[in-house]
């Protein structure tokens, strides 16, 4: 388990929106099943005093923590105001802001991450499914039924592809310690190297899978930074250059960060790279 354990109180911002409300219920269902604290408060400016799925709603994070014990926030606020919600989380002293929202203007993301860093608040995302430590805590929107507890760490830039790979792992009898979706945007808070540093301090985690995509060089940076046994899968080997595949993360910039050269660089560092998701369990077994 990294970042937060079952005792952590969760604040959901953007609580009264469709997504926010839906996932408050799912996160609390998960917490109830494993005996965790779950979501203690929702926040939507102007909607204070309401209740969503049995959770009290406050006008601000400051109001919420005055009455509830909370350490982390999960942000569902619409794109235009999500950066603000990250800064509000940091300013209120929360240790972690998990940002689910997609399509946040990149300048907002950069400002929010810089501000959060000044306040020692880690940002996961944006444009991510959150994180799940099986048996401990679920922060975000990952479908819990695919997960099982174990000692494989997973760090991923994708959402559904993560579920695909977690499903393969679970079916192969390989449980997970923590699965972190770091987000698909070009600029994200916690990167592969940040999460790997946390895994290094986690006794439960024995090996880590990096699920990367075309674009940037964060996967290589992460692989270089750690002594943990790692394996990787990189999506986008068939992606044509200069084409945006779905979200901002998956674009090749002027020949940099295309999947083939990324895979080559990882293999040079002796990181085994799966050529398809179904190969991952076999590769991981060899690492253990």
């Amino acid at each position: 388990m990294i970042y937060a354990d079952k005792s952590a109180g969760i604040i959901v911002t953007g609580a009264t929106g469709r997504q926010g409300a839906f996932h408050i219920a799912l996160m609390n269902e998960y917490a109830r099943n494993i005996g965790g604290t779950g979501v203690v408060a929702g926040v939507t400016p102007g909607k204070g005093g309401q209740e969503i799925c049995g959770v009290p709603v406050y006008n601000s994070i400051r109001d919420a923590i005055a009455e509830c014990d909370a350490e982390v926030s999960v942000i569902f606020v619409p794109a235009g105001a999500a950066g603000d919600s990250v800064m509000e989380s940091a300013s209120a002293g929360l240790s972690l802001a998990v940002t689910i929202t997609e399509h946040i203007p990149v300048h907002d993301t950069m400002k929010a991450i810089a501000y959060a860093k000044l306040h020692d608040c880690a940002v996961i995302g944006p444009n991510c499914p959150g994180l799940l430590s099986p048996g401990e805590i679920k922060l975000g929107i990952m479908p819990a039924h695919l997960f099982s507890r174990g000692n494989i760490g997973v760090i991923s830039r994708s959402g559904t592809l993560t579920y695909e790979i977690v499903d393969e792992l679970t079916k192969a009898g390989l449980g997970q310690s923590t699965v972190v979706g770091i987000g698909g945007d070009p600029v994200i808070g916690q990167t592969f190297s940040d999460v790997l540093r946390r895994f290094e301090e986690d006794d439960q985690t024995k090996a880590v899978i990096l699920i990367g995509e075309v674009g940037g060089a964060l996967e290589e940076e992460g692989a270089r930074s750690t002594d943990l046994p790692i394996a990787a899968y990189i999506a986008g080997i068939s992606a044509p250059p200069e084409k945006r595949m779905g979200h901002a993360g998956a674009i090749i910039e002027g020949g940099e960060g295309d999947a083939r050269s990324k895979i080559e660089r990882l293999r040079k560092m002796e990181v085994p790279v799966a050529s398809r998701p179904s190969e991952i369990p076999g590769i991981i077994r060899k690492l253990l």
């Binding site: 959402g159 559904t160 592809l161 993560t162 695909e164 698909g184 999506a235 068939s238 595949m245």
Partner: peptide
């Protein structure tokens, strides 16, 4: 999801 869709394209290519 972009990652899953891309992985599907990659498998077709494979």
């Amino acid at each position: 999801g972009a990652g899953l869709t891309m992985a599907t394209l990659d498998l077709i290519d494979f």
